[in-house]
């Protein structure tokens, strides 16, 4: 077994000093005006996300859910080694397009965020930003054992262990790494879940927003973005 120093204590006292460029300050514009700059202020909207109701009629909601399930747009954002298992899905051998699965280049247009493998704390920050910029209903799939329990990075100082503490995960696909066939099977499971109306991750995120934010801020020491990135 790996040796562990029983006396080692993590430094919990030191706070990360706020970065110079993030501090509120006054700036003189080229035409001599003095304006206040608050880099952490989101000028679009400071509201937390809110829970979105389902359609009033069940049949309409079911139809919408069917459409959502049959048109999964994946954000092409690879965090770890799993990103390389997604590319074969576009090739003739696996051809995910026939299931209505497509890749989009921008979070605004994507519905499905694949966390493909280990997530370092630094990448987690970007993943949270990306997830919040997506428009609901949105789904998160964790790929590989790294997102489930740390996987082979179980003793790493800089990778997270349980993804669902930071983002509302709809589905895990186990493996190290899962083969593209496993990914396809996972997509089919996700489709079933969406069609049954159980994939309400975005609403869950809005409901337990404070809990998620507390977890996120516990590992991300230099929080340099608004609480919710619209």
């Amino acid at each position: 077994m790996k040796h562990m120093d029983p006396n080692f204590r993590k430094d919990t006292k030191t706070e990360f000093p706020q970065r110079e460029e993030l501090k509120p300050r006054k700036v003189t514009t080229p035409d001599g005006q003095v304006i206040d700059i608050e880099p952490l202020q989101d000028y679009f909207c400071q509201e937390p996300p809110k829970v979105h109701q389902k359609s009033y009629f069940k049949i309409v909601e079911d139809f919408y859910n069917w459409c959502r399930a049959e048109s999964l747009w994946i954000l092409a954002f690879g965090t770890g080694c799993g990103a390389i298992e997604m590319r074969p899905l576009m090739t003739p051998r696996f051809d995910a397009y026939r299931y209505g699965i497509q890749w989009r280049a921008t979070p605004r247009q994507a519905n499905l965020l694949m966390i493909s493998g280990y997530l370092s704390v630094k990448t987690l920050k970007r993943a949270i930003r990306t997830y919040e910029q997506m428009q609901g209903p949105k789904y998160v799939v964790g790929l590989g054992s790294c997102t489930i329990n740390g996987g082979m990075y179980w003793d790493s100082y800089n990778t997270i262990k349980k993804l669902e503490e930071y983002l509302p995960v709809d589905l895990y696909i186990a493996g190290c790494m899962p083969r593209p066939e496993a990914l396809l099977a996972g997509f089919m499971e996700l489709k079933k879940k969406i069609k049954a109306g159980n994939a309400e991750g975005a609403n869950k995120y809005a409901e337990k927003f404070d809990w998620y934010k507390a977890n996120q801020k516990a590992v991300i020491k230099d929080w340099d973005m608004p609480d919710y990135n619209w």
Binding site: F8, D11, T14, Y157
Partner: peptide, 20 residues
Amino acid sequence: LEGWTDMPPYRRDFDTLAYS
């Protein structure tokens, strides 16, 4: 690293398992 507040992690007295 971003926002690292502990001791430099490659030093051998930093126990990465304990930290994790």
